[in-house]
Every structure is written in C-alpha cells, then in structure tokens.
Design a protein around this nucleic acid. Structure first.
Length: 136
DNA sequence: GTTGTGACATCGC
DNA sequence: CGCGATGCCACAA
C-alpha cells in the first residue's frame, strides 16, 4: 500500500532484469535488442502491445546507463549490425572481434554462428534454464 | 505542458 | 539490399 510512484521502481527493476540477462551472455556470443526484450519480463504497467512496439528501445535505454560490469557490446540489432554510430560503434566492433565474433563483409554478424539464443536452441540437451525471465 | 528524438523492429517500395 | 514510414513508450530540452 504505497500509492506513490511505484512505476519508477518497476522501471528500475526492469533495467536490472535487462542487465542481469546481458551479464549472462557468454564471451563470443551476441544477442539482439528484440531478443532481450522478449526474454525479460516487462513492467506490469505496460501493455504487451506497447512493449512489443517499444521494448527493444527500452533495452537500448538500459544499455545507455548500464554499469561497467555489463557486456553491452554483445547486444546488437536484429540485422546483426552495430547500432551504436560513430566512434563508439567502431570500438564495439573491435571488442567483439577480440572476443572471437566474426563480421561479414557487409559488417553483419551471423546469428546462426554467434547468436546466443541460437546456441541454446541448437543445444537442446543442455536444458537451458537461465533464459527464463525469473531472474532476480 | 508540448515537442522532438531514440544503442529498435517490421513492413512497403 | 537500402531507404522511408509506422509503432504510440520514455526521457530530455
């Protein structure tokens, strides 16, 4: 019963969930903003339609203010490309290449080889238990 | 309080 | 494959 701005706390929790999920992306693997948005549970105040339309952008906003221990570089867009423009994008590509991620000649990353979800999907025997939204 | 923009995704051309 | 419009949320100026 605290009718004060609880949505603020919900947003904070949402950001924490995004960061927790991104932290679990292994080295050499990448994930798309939309995939992150689909895996983490949206705030209750937000309808699923609204989240479907803008969830990926909120993930980007969470990345903009993420802590230093979050591997923000492993989050890319659905096209397999770097969304961060300019110098920062160059830096992101360098970091990913250092982790073993290979880029296409068009500057794209193959999700079938470096996509984290594709890895889990391909390895069904591993019983992927960590991609549930119930992360605390 | 209004306006503009966004570390996105999808569809149409 | 590239470019533009749409979605109709959250945040900053």
């Amino acid at each position: 019963m605290s009718p004060v701005s609880m949505s603020q706390a919900q947003k904070s929790e949402y950001f924490s969930r995004v960061w927790s999920l991104v932290r679990q992306v292994p080295v050499g693997k990448v994930i798309a903003y939309g995939q992150v948005a689909e895996l983490v549970a949206p705030p209750e105040s937000v309808s699923s339609e609204a989240y479907r339309a803008f969830g990926s952008r909120w993930v980007g906003q969470a990345m903009r203010g993420c802590p230093a221990d979050v591997p923000w570089q492993r989050v890319i867009n659905a096209q397999g490309k770097i969304s961060l423009p300019g110098d920062a994008g160059q830096h992101q590509r360098e970091l990913l290449e250092e982790e073993g991620v290979q880029f296409n000649e068009r500057g794209r990353i193959d999700f079938k080889k470096f996509g984290w979800l594709a890895e889990l999907k391909s390895d069904a025997d591993n019983t992927p238990q960590m991609f549930l939204p119930g992360i605390e």
